[in-house]
Simulated scan of single mutants.
Amino acid sequence: MDATKQLLHGVRVADFSRVLAGPYATAMLADQGAEVFKIEMPGHGDDSRHLGPFTETGSTYFTSLNRGKRSIEVDLKDATSHEDLIDFIRTCDVVVENFRPGVAAKLGLSFDDIKAVKPDIVYASISGFGQTGTQAKRPAYDTVIQALSGLMSATGFPEGSPTRVGESIADVSAGVFAAFGISTALFHRQTTGEGAHIDIPMLDVMLAMQPTNAAIHAAGAAPSRVGNRHPISAPFDTYRGTDGLVVIAVANDKLFAALADALGKPELVTDPRFATDSARSDNDEALRAEIEEFTTGHSVTELCTIFDAAGVPNSPVLDFAEALDGPITEGRELSAKDPRTGHTYLHHPILVDGARPTSELPAPHLGEHNAEFGTSAHDEQRQRA
C-alpha cells in the first residue's frame, strides 16, 4: 500500500457484523488502513461465506466484502470467551454490530457494556429501524426497506408494478453512512477524547437517499413511477436508436439549446412548450416525439458521437461487464484481485492524493487469526493501559 495514504492507520475495529451492510462499512475502513478483526461464529462464520456465487476458492460475494480483514472465531455465549473478548475490545477503537436491537445487550456487548470498560469507544449499530421505537425489533432485509421507504413505489414504469432497484441499495447505503458516521466520530474523539454511539437505521438512510422524491412530496405532490425519465427535468430519459437505447440528460436551457442544434431543430428552443425545464417536463411526450424523429434514424454509437460533439450529456445503456471492463473505465483501476482466491472485487471508490486506498490482506479464512486474538489482546491491552 505504498502508493496510498492509510488515513485510518492505527485504528482497530472489532467487527461483529454479518452479510452486507456492516461488512461493506468495515471493508471501507480496512481499505483506508484500519485493522479490522471480523468476529465470527465458530465453525460457521459470517453467513456470506455460504452465499454464492462460488468458484473453487469460495464465495466471490464474501471475498468482495471482507478483503483486508482478519478473522477470529468467538463463541459469544461462552463466559470465558466473553472475558477474553472484552479484554480484546479494550484494545479497539471501534465496534461495529448489526444484531437485532436488544441482542447485543443480552450478549453483554451493548454500547453501555463496552463504554463501561472502554469509555472512548466509537460504537456503530446498524439495524433496520434504529435502536428505539415501536419498530426497532422488526427484522429487515434490503427489499423490505426499499418497499417501506417509498423507493420501490417510485421505481419502474407507470404501467408496471413497483420495482426493486437492481442492487441491495439500502444495505450498501447503510454501510456507506456507517463508515461516514464512524469516521466523523473518530475525528470528534481525536479532538475531545469522547466516544460515541452511532445508530444507523436502514429505513432512515433510505429515506435520506431520496432528495428528489422528498422535494416532490414537499411541494404537495406524490412521487410516482416514471420509468427511465427524470421526475422533474426533461429531456432526461432513454430514447430509441436503430439498435438500442441512448440516454440523454439535459437539465438546463443551455444544454437544451445544444441538443436542439444537434437534432437539427434549433426552433425547439423558442417553442413555448419547451422554453423552460418545467415546460419541457410538462410536455415530455411531445418532446420525446421530436427527439426520436431524429434518434430513430441513427445507431446508438452514431448518436453518442453526435451528442458528444455537441456537448450534450449522453450514454449508451451498458451492462455491468461493459461498464467495469470497457473503455469508459479504462485506466481507472476500479477493481482488483484478491491475492488468495483470485476473485475480482471493486476498489474503494474514493481516491486519496490520486491513489485508491486498498489493503494488501486477502479475505480471511474462518478463524485464520485466532492465535493472534488469543495472545495479543492481553499484551496490547496492558501496553495501552
Rank of each mutant, 00 (worst) to 15 (best):
P42D: 15
G227H: 08
P53Y: 12
S110G: 03
I248M: 01
N213Q: 13
L29G: 00
A105V: 06
T4M: 05
E372R: 06
T305N: 14
P339Y: 09
L85P: 02
Q6F: 07
L263G: 00
A377C: 09
G68P: 02
A124R: 01
R273V: 08
A286F: 09
L268V: 14
P339S: 14
F177R: 01
D284C: 12
K115G: 01
H348C: 11
D87C: 08
I182H: 00
D319H: 10
G326T: 13
V165S: 11
Q146E: 11
I350P: 02
L203T: 01
S224F: 04
L109T: 01
R18P: 02
M202Y: 10
P272T: 09
G342N: 13
V269C: 15
R70F: 11
L76Y: 06
I328A: 13
G52N: 10
D113C: 06
E368Y: 09
L259W: 00
I232Y: 02
V94A: 01
G367Y: 04
A221T: 09
H9R: 15
L85A: 05
A249D: 03
D284A: 13
T358K: 06
G156W: 01
M41R: 13
Q135K: 11
K106C: 04
N314A: 09
V250L: 12
F99I: 00
G354C: 03
H378L: 14
G43E: 14
Q190W: 08
S315C: 12
G102T: 00
P42H: 05
